[in-house]
Design a protein around this nucleic acid. Structure first.
Lengths: 339, 339
DNA sequence: AAGTATCATAAAACCGATTTCATAATATAA
DNA sequence: TTATATTATGAAATCGGTTTTATGATACTT
């Protein structure tokens, strides 16, 4: 493996001079610079980033931790994030936790070990100990999408509360009264706020809240299509059957839909379904679910910008809290039922 | 930042002893080991992976380079890959090239710099120079999905030729004669082989090949939904209109479908559509396209296993060439036209 | 009991870059 | 022309681990 010493020898200079050329730092005579560059070329020299990081104490690498790489919401976040970081000279390593807090903790550990410069995370965990490890080392961190109690850090997220109100108001406007909600565990701030929004919208419309119509997943760690499926099956066993279902996110809506179909219920004829988040390209075939869409791409971009500014020491202390408004998109999954 | 020296001091031993404990190498007295472990705990010590890699000359990190993180095919590959590598103690960094060969080259460069232990790649590039840089450094590499001319390396891929034959035979069996193909640039081996399979199936059925029905993307670098859309638009301008369209992959099928719908053509009533690769979860809503499904998850797993075996020096020289058979899944996108 | 093998540990060298410090060569100022 | 500032470069220290080498203490042979 060719090192900076080999290049130095070939160019007839010292390693420090080669380093100066590579990093464009300090004064180097034009002619020397050329000799060094030629030597690099000839030897196919690629500097060892590990050695460089060791000395420089930075890695020009960020981590983006997300719970589900298959969800278009997070791939949009990813694309927005990488778009910015790439332009500003950083690599980002994507950590897909699959909604598993153990994996999340493992990732944090290797991030710590690799001395990553900054972390953006959508956490699935009930605990924040592993994230405090990051903060205690003064590694810049930003939350995306989900808030975390007891952790005062920068965050970019959507307004789940208002989004839920939009969705439920839409259903109420269509004449629905028996509206069920199927959502993820409420240790996730988004799920908690969507539930709050749901209740608030019903209250405002003077519709009594029926706990039988509220199904909160307590078994998994995140938004699970399978759990949504199971919970709808339970829901439909009850005497009280809803005329509309609000699914916590796009994937839960899929589980909801599957369960309904198996029970012989048609959407929207027999029952309406709405949810959070879009499915992008999928809807080229058949735009279907009425949803509240969050600006995922923008969230990724803004998170990257804030994180990089922190790393490069721009607006220091004051924590950024960016809350983006989602947009209601009405499609075919709700009929015009008048109850 | 706490270093191995801090731990050593706290435990009252030398750094080499701490290293021995950390790496479980060499003999260490039980009591000393405990003292060291406690010191690590108390100081929240996380070894610097860059320093370690520098000395050990490995990073326990692999790179997986894929062209489209939004395509379920590649996320399946990813999951299969990570499942194996994680279990065997390796991290994998995912490099999403977005079908852009410049990005691919950039990734290769940082992979080289970071001294990654091995590379798995689905290349989008027409050139192989950047990949030869990897091979020249004796960095283990394996191709996934796409072959590359002039590069003798291990590979795990699907049988695009046979898959295409299955698809076209299915259409022919349904009575179709005027079958169009819309596919990616043929510098991609999969596209080339699908085209060959298409031609072979027609030949075998004594159906003349009509070049007007063959649309090969020459503008983009990969399988593009947008380009498929445009090419179908062109196709439908011609006097000769097909009764069935074979789309190069799942995303191209989406573009095909969109164009057809805009032209007022219904699938499958007016025209049949088949394609390569599935869409997984999407089909929970409406399983639609008849496809030939490749075992993406298995491909990822096998690629990981072969790559790791190479890295850990198991079956040395002989190059593995794994070709997996795809499976025809018949759904609703083809009617029972008799022409 | 003396000689050899094994265990336990420390000191020092090393991985490959960057950075500080020192110094010679050149340019500029007085 | 001499003093000073600037440019150009190299030697050596450093980042934080791992590994080699050396050595004293135990354990095992015969």
């Amino acid at each position: 493996m060719v090192t900076i010493y080999d290049v130095a020898k070939k160019a007839g200079v010292s390693p420090s001079t080669v380093s100066r050329v590579l990093n464009k730092r300090g004064n180097v005579k034009e002619e020397t610079r050329k000799r060094v560059e030629q030597a690099c070329q000839k030897l196919n020299y690629v500097p060892n980033a590990n050695a460089s990081s060791l000395r420089k104490k930075n890695t020009k690498t960020l981590a983006l931790i997300i719970p589900d790489i298959e969800n278009p919401f997070y791939t949009s976040v990813l694309k927005g994030f990488e778009g910015i970081t790439g332009k500003r000279g950083y690599n980002t390593i994507v950590c897909n936790t699959d909604g598993n807090s153990t994996k999340e903790e493992d990732f944090i550990n290797t991030i710590l070990a690799k001395r990553i410069d900054g972390v953006a995370i959508t956490s699935v965990s009930r605990s924040i100990d592993h994230l405090n490890l990051v903060l205690n080392r003064n590694i810049p961190m930003i939350l995306i999408d989900r808030k975390l109690n007891g952790l005062d850090v920068d965050i970019v997220c959507g307004d789940s509360f208002q989004g839920a109100i939009k969705l439920v108001n839409h259903l109420i406007g269509l004449g629905h009264q028996k509206i069920a909600i199927i959502t993820a565990p409420v240790h996730l701030s988004t799920s908690r706020e969507r539930l709050e929004g749901y209740k608030t919208a019903l209250n405002r419309a003077n519709i009594p809240i029926d706990n039988n119509l509220i199904k909160i997943d307590k078994k998994s760690e995140g938004y699970s299509s399978e759990r949504a499926y199971e919970m709808v099956k339970e829901l439909l066993e009850q005497q009280e059957v809803p005329t509309a279902i609000f699914a916590g996110n796009n994937f839960m809506a899929l589980g909801v839909y599957k369960a309904l179909r198996e029970k012989g219920l048609k959407v929207p004829q027999d029952i309406a379904v709405v949810c959070f988040d879009d499915m992008n390209f999928i809807y080229q075939i058949e735009p279907f679910f009425t949803t509240v869409v969050q600006p995922a791409y923008t969230m990724g971009k803004m998170a990257a910008e804030i994180l990089l500014n922190k790393i490069e020491g721009r607006y220091e202390d004051n924590k950024q809290k960016v809350i983006l408004q989602p947009q209601l998109i009405i499609r075919k999954s709700c009929g015009y039922k008048t109850n």
